[in-house]
Amino acid sequence: MDLSSQTSSLPTCSVSLSINGQKHDLELHPWVSLLDLLRGPLELTGTKKGCDHGQCGACTVLVDGQRVNSCLKLAVSLDGSEITTIEGLGSPENMHPMQKAFLEHDAYQCGYCTPGQICSAVGLVGEGHAHNRAEIRELMSGNLCRCGAYTNIADAIEEVMGAEAAKSNKEAAE
């Protein structure tokens, strides 16, 4: 897909990205951030722009399983990467456990920082460095929530971490 047709006088680069399991072969201007690629040409607007400078975490996505700020990534620099956005984690009909926990715990209000919070929380659980509430709070501090849902976000993450721990204990026992 050539997304640069209207400003075609400018140089582009070939980039191949896997986004939510779907392969995209793109011709991109090098100055396009992953965030703007997602929210603009690809119309994957679940990933949010809150500051565009790595100050808020609303744009958090998983790149090769790791949570990063998509606003500070030039899309061309991610050639060959696997990207998971909030849309790829689950749908309203088939939610990811973290999405269900956020819903249940009212871990959001306006919902704008929420996709970034959820991607970040999924990344956090995968990293395995948070073992208590203080560590959850510290390691989720890259996601600002102006509605102040932090207490509920910590509850939601604790629940999912507890469920994961219970699951792995059970598997270990078996």
């Binding site: 249940e104 009212d106 919902g111 929420t114």
Partner: peptide, 12 residues
Amino acid sequence: SRIDGPLKVTGR
């Protein structure tokens, strides 16, 4: 739980 929640938590 919020009725608009499923759309918000899934980025829709």
